[in-house]
Design a protein around this nucleic acid. Sequence first.
DNA 1: TTGTAGGCGTTATCAA
DNA 2: TTGATAACGCCTACAA
Lengths: 335, 335
Amino acid sequence: MDNINIKKLAKVLKISTSTVSRAFNGSVDINKDTKERILAFAKEHNFLPNHYASNLRDKKSKTLAVIVPEIVNDFFAQAINGIEEVARKKGFYILLYRTDDIFEKEVSFVNYLNNGKVDGIIMSVSGEANDHNYLKKLEQKNIPVVFFDRVYEDIDVSKVTTNDYESSFAATEHLIETGCRRIAYLVVNKSVSIGKVRGQGYLDALAKHGIPFDDDLVIDCSQEEKINYSIIKNVLEEIKPDGIFSSVERLAFATYYVCNDLNISIPEDLKIISFSSLGIAPLLCPALSTITQPAYEMGIKAATLLFDELEKKNPAAPKKQHVLKSKLFIRKSSM
Amino acid sequence: MDNINIKKLAKVLKISTSTVSRAFNGSVDINKDTKERILAFAKEHNFLPNHYASNLRDKKSKTLAVIVPEIVNDFFAQAINGIEEVARKKGFYILLYRTDDIFEKEVSFVNYLNNGKVDGIIMSVSGEANDHNYLKKLEQKNIPVVFFDRVYEDIDVSKVTTNDYESSFAATEHLIETGCRRIAYLVVNKSVSIGKVRGQGYLDALAKHGIPFDDDLVIDCSQEEKINYSIIKNVLEEIKPDGIFSSVERLAFATYYVCNDLNISIPEDLKIISFSSLGIAPLLCPALSTITQPAYEMGIKAATLLFDELEKKNPAAPKKQHVLKSKLFIRKSSM
DNA sequence: TTGTAGGCGTTATCAA
DNA sequence: TTGATAACGCCTACAA
């Protein structure tokens, strides 16, 4: 009884495999008693139809891939929660991929997903304005994709973002209004979508208030914590900004560490505000001002858009671009 | 050319399907030139063998499930990173499941994985000392399981834990040595493995120092943040402990919030130490003393043990129990 | 080194 | 309401 399958089950119960199959698939064309008998027996013998055989037959995997730059980050972790929530309700499995913000990994993952392994992909991209041909191949195979937070503008898929420009503008303006004149912009990749959009908000806020733009104040950081530490340390020592607008939370954390070591006090000597979904931002020393994205909701929305496409009758319907609002939390670090 | 498969590929290249198959499977029984020709053509036409068909044929899914209580938690996020690292190298996919610490979800997930969907399962359990029959079914189907961090003692599978007892003992002793006499133990489920083991370390440290045990100081909390807040608030107001030993980081955070609101100052009025893998613990106000588990390494180890079992010749080999050491970081919150 | 063919477990179609 | 059957795409034993 170890390798049980529909055939054996049918034999034992003296019915056909089709009837057994129907019992598991919510078919109406089956006698209620028969169905109950089958399910009871199956449960007792711990049987479930093999998923891979069904997938092969149906050409549907009921699986979606989630590709994110990192997991140890409340934003992505919460977004994954949102995605999982929706997927679970639909009975879908979630394959998780982490790119570490390395473009090559993203390309490799996407290429490997090209074998019918998943029905759809939700991703927050890691690359720069590179060749995106690997993504276009997915379209050929009818595998829908949804971007969230970090997107490629040149790829026509559904997207879920926040009002990055307005938030960045507001955050920068806030720093200006509290007296900052030399505001550094910390970014991981200034040429990538959100890096660029957020940078524009920063620039425009400076312009509006007649503060000349200084290229030295745009600090392009890296993936490596240690490198970031020294980059930021160098900036604080040499360029001496009086405000920091960080597009990624870990750069704000790095700044905190540097300030501790250099005895720079926040907010007196340096004010900080950062994009961050960190739940305990109020508990930092000092409490960190944040632009907080609705991470969980973004995950929900991204998954919903994906299922819209998976279930849609009209595959030529235009892709949707959904913008959720971030929220500014002014705390001690920028007062 | 849309629905390409091995057959069509073979036809176009005027060779047999077996040869094509061999090209993809690292077979030695194939002419090098033939292989290259096939792979080049496949790449050009964006073809990869269908995973589900291979799985069905091979009865191997190259997929493993990771079941954790939460994702928005640096410990689990880092552990997942470790698991992913190993799995990726082995060419395995990772299915992610989050239980929210709800036992019923765990049971349901595990039951659904009983259809050959995965080759193995790595999990940190959520339940109490319940009926674990659902796990025993996996054994029947030869699906190996590895527990990490939170384990069931009565289930004979490989386990990766930390020295919870010693760390808890040391943490409690540390609080005693800094002068605490009324130390509360915050726990999410005192009857579950780690809750129990950590509680024992706490108890024994009290005993060693001749401090009588007070049942009111063992605070069993919940999944709900709001409920935890009021439980803890009530404890601080009514029972007035002078030290907190928290077995879960979010209870420590909740305590911080309560202290802020009640104007209780840490560490003067109340000292705190908590299990936590939070990277920015030093940045909290005040810096949080932690017992930090080697989360990433635990993930690596758990995955390694799982692959040991998957690849092992002797299925009757005894299960392994691996204990990694946690590290005590004394910071301002308990000085 | 290559080809042939059967079967992995399921489900949809068609017939009864 | 039920049953027989072919097919999903791949891989491997066996034959050539």
